[in-house]
Amino acid sequence: MVISSYRESGDDILVKATLEGDQNAFREIVSRYRKMVARTVKGMLGDTVYSEDIGQEVFIKLYHSLQEFRGEAKLSTYIQKIAVNLTLNEIKRRKRFFSMFTHKGSDELYEYDVADDDYAGKNDVRELVSKALMQIDPKFRSIVVMRMLQGYSTKETSEILSLPVGTVLSRLSRAQEQLREILKNQK
């Protein structure tokens, strides 16, 4: 079956067509979910050149693991799990790498990247919130990104992050406390 445009197709059709080797179907998946992945990756890593690489890796990993996707969960949830895992791995990896060569934490380096990017001045509020997010612990950050930026419910957040609901709630509460403290001088 040849489908010229998958724009109107459901995720299940896109997955099936991709597994049959149709790369146009996968292109549509990337196009459909790139903003969602960008919000997760850039929300957690900052708007840096590395975020673009991680974003690509999310979809490459998705492409190679689509056979394991059984359709029990939504495709968006499956993609979010990959995005969160790869981003958290990247944060750990960079922390480890930079701690060997510099006294600066990896997050401080991200902050410089953010300032260097055309991102600065583009959107003051977004920049302030992003910088505040960079200052909180990554495990708290992932919850704020899922719950507040992506708009998932507590239950959905707990499923994506593979955490108990109670842990999500307590971490969110602590994260918001920290954010409140950081943002109170920015008003």
Binding site: K35, R39, E52, Q56, G151
Partner: peptide, 16 residues
């Protein structure tokens, strides 16, 4: 969502 919207660069699909 509107304020905290992000996207990747143009041609992202092609790069992937």
């Amino acid at each position: 969502k509107d304020i905290m919207s992000f996207d990747f660069s143009e041609g992202f699909e092609d790069k992937v």
